[in-house]
Amino acid sequence: MILKTERQGANLIVFIDGELDLETAPLFKETIEKKLNQYESVRHLILDLEKVSFIDSSGLGAILGRYKRLSGQGGKISAIKVSQPVKRIFELSGLLKVVKIYENRQQALDNK
C-alpha cells in the first residue's frame, strides 16, 4: 500500500493505493495520526479510495479509529471515488453512518 497526504486548510486528503487490511492498517493509522498531530487544525479527513483494491474489517477498524479521534474534536471523515466492492463493505459494516461518500474531492470540500 502506498499513502500520499495533502493538507488543504482544515482538510487532510489521503490518497490510498493498494489493499487496506491487517498488514497495511498499522501504516495507515501511523501516517494519519502523525499528520493529525502535525496539523492540529485539521478537522476533515478526506480518504481518496480510487486505488483501493481491497478492504476488510481490519481496514474499516483503522478508519473507525481515526473517526473516533476526529469526532472527539468536532471533526469528520469523508470518502471519495469509492469503488462498488468497497462501498458494499462500507454499507454492510454500518460505517456509512459516520463516513460520508462523495464523488470527488470538490464535493467533499464543499460539504464540510
Binding site: 474489517s57 481490519s58 483503522a62
Partner: peptide, 8 residues
C-alpha cells in the same frame, strides 16, 4: 481488540 470492529 480496540482497533477492530468485531465484524470478521
Amino acid at each position: 481488540e480496540p482497533e477492530h470492529m468485531g465484524l470478521g
